[in-house]
Amino acid sequence: MRFTLSTEQVDFAASLRTMLADAKTPDTIRAWGAGELDAGRALLGRLADAGVMGLGIAEEFGGLGAHPVDTVVAFVEIGRAGVPGPLVESAAAIPALLQALPDSSLAQKWLPGIAEGTTLASLVLSPSVPRALDGDIADVIFHVDGDALRTGDATTQVASVDAARRLFETQPSDVLTEDIGAAADSAFDHGALACAAQLHGAGQAVLDLSTEYVRNRVQFGRPIGQFQAIKHHLADAKVHLDMAAPLLHGAAVAVAADSPTASRAISAAKVACGDATYLASRKALQVHGAIGYTAEYDLSLWLTKIRALVTAWGTPTVHRARIAESLRATS
């Protein structure tokens, strides 16, 4: 069976891409990493106005109750633009966490504000998410502590290879609820799926930057994109990204169907998108040369983000282990 995006999903992606291109996100990324957050907060507000923050939130809690594929579509564009901030946490993982709790009171309290863009939330979910992204500016940090869900207080900032990825250690505080059961697993799955989509979009971004560069960079009297070796590098990256996309969309379909193998599908998507995007980043460096490393050149913003996202929301080793464990259990 062939799966394709609907006309509405294609149009949604196109509208987000146009909006984010107009926002000149490289400037926003650099400012966010320097602690100048106004432009980034304004951009997050625009994403909320476009419905992105409410995609994974049910209508009863002020969201859109959209299909998981819609969330994937949005996060591909977020990754393509390199938007900073705790988007995976606020728009994907935390809605899944709170809506999976037996008691809906926390969802009723926090999710309407997240959907509207008036509440920014972060999450600690050990061992794979041990620090709160942008914890210092989050209106609330949810800290999963064993079987209990607590609030958390941001303490020390921890450096990341991606300067715009502002990570904070947290101290668990008030208990919100106990015996959260499978809610933490749901949060991890939705966070990993959104992160995989973000990675895939970042991979497309570095491929687009590389394609534009080789069309304009002249060596030996002609654009280097005309050389066969350069074409092979970029074609290799394109093939790997294209092969990862069906796994990404298939995982979203599995989540929507509440498939018993949805977690395995998400892990497969995270590994495939991570591998394809990391390959694309290496190819981008090869065709750009030393300029690709420089902080002043926009490519570097995506290279560092990709390096951080490959291990975020579960390392490749963690997800490969989940796939192997699932296959053994069903064999």
Rank of each mutant, 00 (worst) to 15 (best):
G82W: 04
V239N: 01
S210H: 01
H190S: 07
L133F: 04
H233T: 02
A183Q: 06
S15W: 01
W313V: 03
Q171R: 15
Q228T: 12
A205R: 15
D179I: 03
A74N: 09
D49Q: 09
I141F: 11
S6D: 05
P86V: 04
G63Y: 02
V161M: 14
A148G: 06
Q171Y: 14
Q157C: 12
S173T: 13
S331C: 03
L106R: 08
D185V: 13
V158D: 07
T155Q: 14
A265H: 10
P127S: 11
D70R: 11
P223W: 00
Q9C: 05
E89F: 11
A202L: 13
L16P: 00
A81W: 05
V88Q: 08
L193W: 08
E77H: 02
A197D: 10
T315L: 02
A272G: 06
D11Q: 12
I94W: 09
H249M: 14
W302S: 15
A48I: 14
Q171I: 13
T170A: 12
F61W: 06
A182D: 13
A262N: 13
H249V: 14
G117H: 07
L279D: 02
G51V: 00
R264E: 14
K109L: 07
P172F: 10
C273E: 03
D258Q: 15
R30S: 11
A256L: 12
L149A: 05
A268L: 14
L98N: 08
R46W: 00
Q228M: 11
E212A: 15
L279E: 04
R41P: 07
L241T: 03
V144D: 07
G135R: 08
A58W: 03
A205Q: 15
T177P: 05
A164W: 04
L43E: 03
L106S: 10
L247R: 13
L327M: 04
V175H: 05
A115K: 01
Q99Y: 08
D134E: 04
H67Y: 02
L303H: 06
G85N: 09
